[in-house]
Write a protein that binds this DNA or RNA. Structure first.
Lengths: 143, 143
DNA sequence: ATATCACATTAGATATAGTCTAAGTTCTCA
DNA sequence: TGAGAACTTAGACTATATCTAATGTGATAT
């Protein structure tokens, strides 16, 4: 996605396209690494040092509220962030904490009645388990 | 589950059945509220003040490691804990952060290949969305 | 043009959640 | 009964994230 498209997607949600906000969004769209806020802060300031930690947090909050970014909480670790592009599920490794995207596929609804009145957010779910590196026989590097 | 059964389940995993640890486990088994560590600490000490915060955290860590308890991370909030009884999925409300159990049902695996070498943990997943209270028309109390 | 005002950024203080340390206690088993 | 392992504890510490108050920036009206 080009600069103009990012700018438009920001403004479509009522957010100004500031250099700092743009940098966060652009970085999230070009990576598939599900970075933490600290990693985003570093990446943005590596290119052109011009965003504070507070602004990085502010912008991440705004982008999540605007529905452009998803935050993924992980037990005992910093939250990770993911630009919402195409619908997809997530997989989090129980051992190293890495987050991976899983291509979208339809999941059946829970037993009728058990989710009455609840609105599932597009039925995107989080799977847990051991990633390729951490599974027995894998390279098993701790992240 | 009675006291003896809790004691046995602890010792089966190699953990001593201390009063503090027993209290944490018993509280988690009798509630369906997915409490935070602070709530567990308070509940335990309300009955008989005899556990420190550090011990509560230590025991929660031990119980999670032993596979008797599940920790559920939530963006921007304290982790919540859940005694693993019968297999079940989880639902987390995007608005109030409440966690609900969803009765177990089989989910189809992701598209073949997309999880190569990954090991799904029993295919229990976390759904996201709006709970009954927070959905439009619901009572909408913030938790 | 420029005044105004809402939106945005910033450094640093503060809050919250959770971990570590070092000392003491209790259990187990030889 | 003594030794070592497992456990508990208060309080210090760390990590993550939010808040505050001052400053900066850009859109709009006049």
């Amino acid at each position: 996605m080009d600069a103009e498209a990012i700018k438009r997607s920001l403004e479509d949600t009522g957010l100004r396209c500031t250099p700092q906000r743009y940098a966060v969004m652009a970085f999230l769209m070009e990576t598939d690494q599900h970075p933490t806020s600290a990693e985003i802060f570093e990446a943005v300031n590596r290119v052109d040092p011009r965003s504070s930690r507070a602004t990085t947090y502010n912008n991440l909050r705004d982008l999540v509220q605007a529905g452009l970014v998803r935050e993924v909480a992980i037990e005992g670790r910093a939250a990770r962030f993911d630009a919402k592009g195409m619908r997809h599920h997530h997989f989090i490794c129980d051992r190293c904490g890495n987050v991976e995207d899983i291509d979208w596929y339809d999941l059946p609804s829970p037993a009728p009645g058990s989710l009455d009145k609840r609105i599932l957010r597009e039925s995107e779910v989080i799977f847990r388990g051991l990633c390729a590196k951490c599974a027995p026989g894998g390279a098993s590097r701790q992240a």
